[in-house]
Amino acid sequence: MKGLFKSKPRTPADIVRQTRDLLVYAQRAPDSRESKREEKMSELCKNIRELKSILYGNSESEPVSEACAQLTQEFFKENTLRLLITCLPKLNLEARKDATQVVANLQRQQVQSKLIACDYLVTNIDLMDILIQGYGNTDMALHYGAMLRECIRHQSVARYVLESQHMKKFFDYIQLPNFDIAADAAATFKELLTRHKSTVADFLSKNYDWFFAEYNSKLLESSNYITRRQAVKLLGDILLDRSNSAVMTRYVSSRDNLRILMNLLRESSKSIQIEAFHVFKLFAANQNKPADIVSILVANRSKLLRLFADFKIDKEDEQFEADKAQVVREIAAMEPKDS
C-alpha cells in the first residue's frame, strides 16, 4: 500500500494529522498486540521529530515560514496540543524533548500575524493545570516546566496562572529537594512575576496580603540558602520596577518587612547581603516613613552605619556606592519621630 503513495511527499499538515492520529492511538490503554504498539509509538516519535525539524530547520535547511504556518494552523485546528501534553509521559525521553521544543516553538508562530497558540490556550486554559502540576512529577517536571514558561509568554495565560490556586504551590515547588526541578520552578515563578508588568502590578495589589505573607515566611525566611538568595533578588526586581511602585510603597512601610530585610543584611553570604541592600535602601529612601520604621532605624543606627562602612562589593560599582552613600546619609540624619 505504502508504495503507491510514496511519490507524494507529506505536507506539514499531513504530518500534524498523522501525529494526531498516532497520539489518539497512544492515549488508549496499551494494546494487546505489543509489537504493533511499539511500531506505532516509534512512528509517533518520528513524526514529532519531523515537526521539530520543520519548525527549527536542520543542518541542511533553515525553517520555511510557509511550512511553519501550515503546521501551526493544522496543529491548533484540533486538539493536538492537548493530546501531546497528556501523552507526553508515554513517550520516550528523546520524543519528550522534541515535543517540548515543538510546543515551545508553536507559542511564537504567527499565522496571518496572529498568535493562534494563544487563542487555543485561552479556550483550553485547563492545560495550564496539567503543566503546573507537572512540578510534582520528577520525570515530567522539566518538560512540562519548559512548556509552561513558553505558554506564559501570553499575557492572558500568565494572568490565569497568577490568579489561579496554583500560585500558592510555587512556594513549595521552588523548595523541592531536587535542585533541577526547584530551579526550573523558580525560573517560572520569576517569569510570572516580572514579565507582564501591568498584570503583575494588578495581581500584587489585589493579592498583597497573602502573597507577601507567604513570600516572607516561606522564601525570605527559608532555611534553604539558595531559596533565600533567589527570593531576595527577585523581591528587589519586583519592588524596583516602576510599574509596581504602589506595591513597593506598601511593602517598605511595614515594620515586619524591615525586620526581615535587616536580618538578611546580617547574613554571612555576601550575595544575600548585597541583594538585601537593594531592598533595604527602599526603606531608607522612603520619604514618608511611618514612625515605627523610623524608630527601628534610629535604634539600630550605629549598627547599620558600622555595617555599611565595611560594606563593599568585589567589583567597582558607582551606582552601588552612590546608593550606599545616600542610605548612610539618610540614616545618619534621622531623628526619632514623635508618634
Binding site: 518538560h143 526550573d184 539558595i226 553570604s269 555576601k270 550575595s271
Partner: peptide, 19 residues
C-alpha cells in the same frame, strides 16, 4: 554556592532543560 554567581543557576537550568 556562596561563591557562585546568580548567573550560575540560570546557566545550570538552561542546561538541565535540555536533559
Amino acid at each position: 554556592l556562596n561563591q557562585a554567581t546568580a548567573d550560575f543557576e540560570v546557566k545550570l537550568r538552561d542546561t538541565k532543560t535540555l536533559s
